[in-house]
Design a protein around this nucleic acid. Sequence first.
DNA 1: TAGATTGTTAATCGATTAACAATC
DNA 2: TAGATTGTTAATCGATTAACAATC
Lengths: 218, 218
Amino acid sequence: MSVKKNTVSFSVIRRLPRYYRFLGDLLASGVGRISSKELAERMHLTASQIRQDLNCFGGFGQQGYGYNIHQLHREIGKIIGVDHDLQAILIGAGNLGQAIATHMHFEKRGFTLTGIFDCDAQKVGRQVAGLQVQHSDDLSAFCAQRHPTIAILCIPKTAAAQVAESLVELGITGFWNFSHYDLRVDHKNVVVENVHLGDSLLTLCYQATHNIHTPDFL
Amino acid sequence: MSVKKNTVSFSVIRRLPRYYRFLGDLLASGVGRISSKELAERMHLTASQIRQDLNCFGGFGQQGYGYNIHQLHREIGKIIGVDHDLQAILIGAGNLGQAIATHMHFEKRGFTLTGIFDCDAQKVGRQVAGLQVQHSDDLSAFCAQRHPTIAILCIPKTAAAQVAESLVELGITGFWNFSHYDLRVDHKNVVVENVHLGDSLLTLCYQATHNIHTPDFL
DNA sequence: TAGATTGTTAATCGATTAACAATC
DNA sequence: TAGATTGTTAATCGATTAACAATC
């Protein structure tokens, strides 16, 4: 167990969830240890890269043996922060919002979904993922009482900037943004993860057009 | 107008949709020309990088003037292949599938959605995005007749590999995969764009935990 | 012409890969 | 001990940035 050496680059950070996922799958399939070489083959990386990546955070392996999958999975989970139980709210209960609420397994990823909001009166009151959709007008009161820190935006592009702005006022410090708008919040301490599905679709278009396979990134 | 010089790297390919999107927005807002400097500020890139990127494909700019937005948008669209009209089918008409079908504006991105399939008899017959959900049993006949080339997978992780395999047999050469499974098809000529929303959520978790803002990628 | 801004080369920076000594 | 495989340094590779001549 050595002290961390390399700086943690954005590339490494982007790869962490992937490591976590593969290790979780291995764990589920009952494998107990793995070498960087074997993990590299599965993940389509190089063994060198894996050892470099993991060494940003400390020596999790053992010479001559490899990595203990259970331990490594747990350590990476800690680095990502899946044990922090972030309280999240969902804004926008359309099809996408419902899909996200229903299928994302928030508990397994460090989040608890505590509220769902929509400004469409027709959707208010509906049951989604075990929660009753509330009206957006009640957001302020809800935040004052429950203090969620993460907001998931499944709203139209046009509403995104303004909604985000007011959510920051209500104490939100992290956004998972599906609105097709390049969200950028200047307040210090506020982080944003933009998901641009349209860009992903265009990347597929490029790949299909040129018959070139670009490597995964997310 | 010069001959292309730089090799087109994966980084550049991943940025193309972003360029296309920003240029489209500028176009919509009525701006006619832009300099690399100004575009860089908007997109949070450097002017150098933009000029390098665009020069992979040829000289679209004019010294002393900048870039004609209309022309540049059209050229990048052509490079991406948005004019190729790829025929796509959607597999899985759950909430996510419905959201994708309804909100992705396929026409604007070079695709036509021609069929929606689900193996759940309850969903068959429903109207989604102007199409009637068909039973998966009819996929084979449909493909024989309509020859779609792209499949959008909104199905569970466990089904992904097998479904993809049989779709390749039916002539599918491109996948947009939302199944949380790392799809990888070995057949030559088949391209895959995996969308791992779970990884994106974990990246948000990391950012929130460490209060570090990783740059956009998609 | 003078001013602006590109296209393009060269320099820098960072990330990946290779190699190997350390060590289990 | 011998074999395996890590941790870590050095070498390579690639991508970004800086600089500037070309030119509109």
